[in-house]
Design a protein around this nucleic acid. Structure first.
Lengths: 236, 236
DNA sequence: TTGATAAATTATACCGATACAATTATAATG
DNA sequence: CATTATAATTGTATCGGTATAATTTATCAA
């Protein structure tokens, strides 16, 4: 693990352990430099990382402060590693509806930079959180990249397999959201009524080298899912 | 404007003008250093910015590449300056339903770090996009920070007034999303049916110094609103 | 041709230093 | 006491450099 990541982790732990609250001040950069015995630039990078994660904010001329803790039980739309409902005291399980090798839909092919004649792993499953249906998930995996899948793997965490088992590195993702009404089939799989609200999320996941390897359409059970996202105006 | 921002803008323009596509390679850092006559660190910061904005991605040992252009017509959930449907050929108007000074709800008070006995500007309006109802918006503005508002201002862009008129600097925001069914009143204001799907977004906007100044609840017309968000796994 | 090995390319981590800008604390002033 | 001017604090921008890790290209051996 890199120095700046390590330090970021330790600062985060420090905030946690001393249960610092919104607006509480952290030691100044100079102090952190001495404490961790690294240069200013390294501390700065650590703080940048913590800022991106929404843990702290910095005010020039003033100091480094802890940001408001966000509400618990929300799914982050930013960290793209599958589900990460905060503090994993949630039990996520899944039931496989469908699993095979097939030709991608036009949409999937385009998202994965494939021809419609190429093949993909197709996985359709319902995911449960503490026994409640959480979502219906249809995924298309680039077979040239995700070279092997089986039922055991897709019953567990596919992302864990991709990173640990295959040694691939997940990079960035694009996600498109829209709200609509549940179709007959979706409703029955989710245990809801046809016409009930749904949140549909289409995601394209890429490796660090930019290759798209997973196109997924997730239909959420509106009763079980809440999301959060941290914005930042210095993007424009 | 700072050097690294300026350069980021120019690189973005370069991509646009030469209509570079997904995966196309940009000049290497060394070349960019020479072209813009700045140090490596400055180029690096420009590229970091473009990466955060989802314009490019970098691969160590390989180069700098342009990222897939995202779909048009989607509202970004990351840049927190009100609405920014891509490429503003959209006409956004609004109708004021309610506007006064009042005590905040408990939720609003807590979000704005106020007592329930403090006062806030309350604004309720329906916003339209090209004539169609886009959303219903209820906002609470910290009266100690947003010291003055009137009907003219809230008919236009409040954020523009806050930054230009009041000279305040918007920093970060927290946003919580959930899906549900429209109430009677919401539906009538949005021109939809009671029980139709809704996406409800609660946001807290802060100044760069960390002060929360705006708590807003936005109920979107599901027929008119699509969203996108760019994730990044090096957040963890 | 294939496959392994080495070299070159290229982004990233880290160091240290100077100048600058925003904020906050202090002192001076009326 | 309030207001203003000044100084100290503190994060940010920029420079420039060395070392490292991932990838690609070139080289060589089988």
């Amino acid at each position: 693990m890199l120095k700046y990541q390590q330090i970021a982790t330790e600062i985060e732990k420090y905030i946690e352990e001393n249960s610092l609250q919104q607006g509480d001040k952290l030691p100044v950069i100079e102090a952190l430099m001495n404490q961790y015995e690294v240069s200013k630039s390294t501390i700065t990078k650590s703080l940048e990382l913590l800022e991106k994660k929404g843990i702290i904010f910095q005010v020039r001329g003033s100091g480094i402060f802890v940001r408001r803790h966000h509400r618990k039980g929300y799914i982050s739309l930013l960290s793209n590693q599958g589900f990460k409902k905060d503090l994993e005291d949630y039990q996520i399980t899944s039931q496989i509806i469908d699993f095979d090798v097939r030709k991608p839909t036009q949409e999937a092919a385009q998202s994965l930079n494939l021809q419609e004649t190429d093949e993909v792993y197709y996985v359709k499953r319902v995911r449960y959180i503490n026994g409640q249906t959480l979502c219906l998930e249809e995924s298309y995996y680039h077979k040239g990249i995700i070279t092997y899948l089986n039922k055991e793997i897709i019953s567990e965490s596919i992302f864990h397999y991709i990173t640990e088992g295959l040694g691939l590195k997940v990079g960035f993702s694009d996600m498109y959201l829209q709200v609509g009404k549940l179709q007959e089939e979706e409703a029955s799989l989710l245990g809801l009524e046809s016409g009930d609200p749904k949140l549909c999320a289409e995601s394209i996941f890429h490796l660090t080298n930019g290759q798209p390897f997973d196109f997924s359409k997730v239909t959420y059970n509106y009763e079980q899912s809440q999301f959060f996202v941290q914005g930042n105006s210095h993007l424009l």
